[in-house]
Each structure stands twice: as structure tokens, then as C-alpha cells.
Simulated assay, not measured.
Amino acid sequence: MTFLSYAYRALSNFVFLGLVYFSLNYLEKYEQRAIVAILVFIYAAMHAFSALRSFSFFQRIERLEGETRRLVAASGEGPNSAASRKQIVSDVTALRHAGEIKAYIDLFFLALVILLCIAKIVTN
């Protein structure tokens, strides 16, 4: 299921890249093409900034995972509670890792969109 979510994220970003490419190539006038490229550039830059900001969030989650593992190891509670906490921490770790991979996929395609927009603005 995780790989399916990665494939969906890559496919949806590829479709977005294709839409931007074809919409910028089919505009005849430079002014119209530049305006659309600037608007898409602003959108992609804001989305990329949001994806970059999520990495600090993921880093904080990773620190919390380490702290939780340390506390679980230090606490002398029964085996059932320790096992359930280990399961929760491993689930959070898997979700964090999947979120990081999806953020990398987003950043890759957004960088391509930004480069495409800059190329269409610069060229006449």
C-alpha cells in the first residue's frame, strides 16, 4: 500500500508537470505565457516551501520517537504496555518515513516545474 501511495504521488505530480508544460507551450503571446509562468512559479514555490518546512516537523517527530523509545526502555511496566508502545512507535516511524519520501517526490517535481517556468519566462 505504501508503494501505491508513492506511485500515486509521482503520477499526480507528473500530470501537474505535464499540464504546466503544455499550457505554457500552447500560449502564443509572450506576455500571456510569462504571466501564466509567473503564477505557476509562485504556486510551486509556495508548495515547495511548505514541503521544505515539513522536514523540520519530521525531524521533531524523529526526536520524539527516540525519546519515547528511551522512556519505554526505562519504564518497568508490564510486557503488554511495552509491546503496545513499541507498536505505536514503529507505526509512527513508518508514517514519518513515508511522509519524508512523499515530500522528496513533491520537491523533485516542483523543482522541475520551477525550472520550466523560469525557462519560459527567460526565453522569448
Rank of each mutant, 00 (worst) to 15 (best):
V40E: 08
F49R: 00
M46A: 15
A7E: 01
F109W: 10
Y8W: 11
V72K: 04
V20E: 01
A10Q: 04
M1W: 04
I88K: 06
F57C: 02
Y6W: 13
E65Q: 14
H97V: 13
A82V: 11
Y104S: 02
A48F: 15
Y30F: 12
Y26N: 05
L52P: 00
L64Y: 09
L11Y: 08
A83D: 11
H97R: 10
G66R: 12
R85H: 09
L11D: 03
Y43V: 15
N13R: 11
S75M: 07
A37P: 14
F49N: 04
T2P: 00
F3Y: 14
A10R: 08
L52Y: 11
Y8N: 12
M46W: 05
F16S: 14
R53S: 12
I118L: 15
V36A: 10
F14N: 06
E67L: 08
L27E: 04
A51L: 12
I121W: 03
A45K: 07
L112N: 07
Y30K: 14
F49D: 02
K102W: 00
G76L: 12
Y26W: 14
L95I: 03
K29L: 00
S56D: 11
A7K: 03
S75L: 08
E100C: 02
R85K: 07
A82F: 04
L17Q: 09
L107A: 07
A103G: 09
L52H: 05
A10F: 10
A103W: 00
A73E: 09
Y30Q: 10
I105W: 01
I88Y: 01
A10K: 08
A111V: 10
R70G: 04
H97P: 00
Y43K: 03
S50L: 12
V36Y: 10
A83W: 13
R63A: 11
T2C: 03
L116N: 05
R70V: 07
H97G: 01
V20N: 07
R70Y: 13
H47K: 11
A34T: 12
S50D: 09
